[in-house]
Every structure is written in structure tokens, then in C-alpha cells.
């Protein structure tokens, strides 16, 4: 075990992904999310991206996809390069250094599923909002489509399974819960997450110089706002 890693962080496995990519996979044991692992993923992603040696560097919650140019580098050489990087990687608590505040209007039309989560968590709406907006979340993955932000674990009492049948349309900016995950829909899309609120901010806007509001490796904090503020901000 490398001394650079925190004591309970095991060396990741390097798994071949086809002929021109390697998946760095961390072992979480029985856990579904580990903050030190996710920080290690983003620290690696950040430095590998800067090295310019890779075609795509795509972080997951507990894994990192590294695609190399097979016409210039072999699978073995790529593995060696990654092993070296993992050994010497310095941990970074907040890899990009950004903490972004996301205003969110909880409940009502913007959060149609808040009642269901109030029931299972036995929390008042106020307590639920305080709990969900009380933590700082890591932006773990961007995607599956542009602007969707997969965030780190929600407080345990808020965990809730997805809808059995996904909604055919979830509005852009909707904030939801799926199992232990919480996340934000960047674009209007079909989806099965339990929607508890909505942000008036656009997570993805192709007309902005910086189209993305957040990126993987950032941290975000939710700030509760009223429906009135929501409409003022989205006007």
C-alpha cells in the first residue's frame, strides 16, 4: 500500500477495457460510496488530464476510465504509466478548488416527490430541506447526458428508491434522489429519480462562454429559495 493514500484506501485494480482503454477501479468493499475514493479518482483525473497523454479521461464514482491512443501507445505502456501515476499521486481534498452554490426551490410543483420522502424519512418538510441543503456535496460524475450532475451520497434518512416507471419528462434543473445518490438534471430528459426540488440555474447552456456551471471534482452547496425567488431568477 502506498504511504500517500489514506490508511483504509486500497490500491485500485487496473482493468482492461477493450483494446484501447483501462478502467482504474477502486474496491469499496460493502460501501456504496466513499469520499476518500472519489477524491482519489478526481485527483488522478485532474493530473492525467493535464499530462495530455490520454484521449479521454472519464471519472466515475469509484472508477476512472483512461482511453489511450493505440496507434501511439501500447496497452502495457499505458498500464505502466498509470501505475506510476497512482503511486506518486498526491491527494487533493477538492480537486478543482470550486465550491458552487446552487439555489433550489424545494417541494411544490418543483419537487413533486418530496412528500414520499417525508413519509419514509418521517421528517417535516422544513427538517428535510435543512438536512438536504445542510451538506456539501461532491460532483462525482457529469453525464450521462450534458449537464447532468451525479452528486455524492445524500444523508441516510433521505435515501429512496427510484420510481418503478420513469417519468417521460423531467424538467431541466430538477434535483432528485435515487437510492443513495442525489443529482441534478441539466437538460430536460426522461428520468426515474425522486424529484424534491428545482434550481432556476442552467447547468448547461451552449450559448454561455462557459457552458457548464459545474464540473466533476467541484463541490456544491444547495441554498433553499422560495417559489417567488425561483421565478424571479428564471425570468
Amino acid at each position: 500500500m502506498s504511504p500517500k493514500l489514506s490508511p483504509n484506501l486500497k490500491e485500485p485494480h487496473l482493468i482492461e477495457y477493450g483494446d484501447s482503454a483501462i478502467l482504474i477501479q477502486y474496491d469499496l468493499g460493502d460501501m456504496h460510496y466513499s469520499k476518500p475514493v472519489n477524491e482519489a479518482v478526481h485527483a488522478l483525473a485532474h493530473d492525467l488530464q493535464l499530462s495530455g497523454n490520454w484521449l479521454e479521461i472519464v471519472p466515475g464514482y469509484d472508477s476512472l476510465l483512461c482511453q489511450f491512443d493505440l496507434s501511439k501507445m501500447s496497452l502495457e505502456a499505458s498500464k505502466t504509466l498509470l501505475k506510476k501515476q497512482i503511486k506518486t499521486q498526491k491527494p487533493k481534498a477538492n480537486p478543482t478548488g470550486n465550491i458552487i452554490e446552487i439555489p433550489i426551490c424545494y417541494g411544490g410543483d418543483h419537487g413533486p416527490d418530496i412528500n414520499a420522502i417525508q413519509k419514509t424519512s418521517k421528517l417535516s418538510k422544513k427538517a428535510l430541506i435543512e438536512l438536504h441543503s445542510g451538506s456539501t456535496y461532491d460532483v462525482c460524475i457529469m453525464g450521462f447526458i450534458p449537464g447532468f450532475a451525479f452528486l455524492s451520497e445524500a444523508p441516510k434518512v433521505l435515501h429512496h428508491p427510484r420510481h418503478a416507471t420513469p417519468r417521460s419528462l423531467v424538467p431541466a434543473g430538477s434535483v432528485g434522489i435515487a437510492g443513495w445518490q442525489t443529482g441534478i438534471y441539466g437538460l430536460e430528459s426522461p428520468g426515474g429519480w425522486q424529484i424534491i426540488g428545482r434550481t432556476p440555474l442552467k447547468l448547461f447552456d451552449k450559448t454561455r462562454t462557459k457552458p457548464f456551471l459545474v464540473e466533476a471534482g467541484d463541490q456544491i452547496k444547495f441554498k433553499p429559495i422560495s417559489a417567488k425567488t425561483f421565478y424571479e431568477m428564471s425570468a
Partner: peptide
């Protein structure tokens, strides 16, 4: 096994 969202490539 339950799977956490993980990266995907064209051709997978």
C-alpha cells in the same frame, strides 16, 4: 450485482 454508474465508451 448492483452497479454504480460508471464510464462508458462508444462500441461497448
Amino acid at each position: 450485482l448492483p452497479m454504480t454508474s460508471s464510464p462508458l465508451l462508444p462500441g461497448t
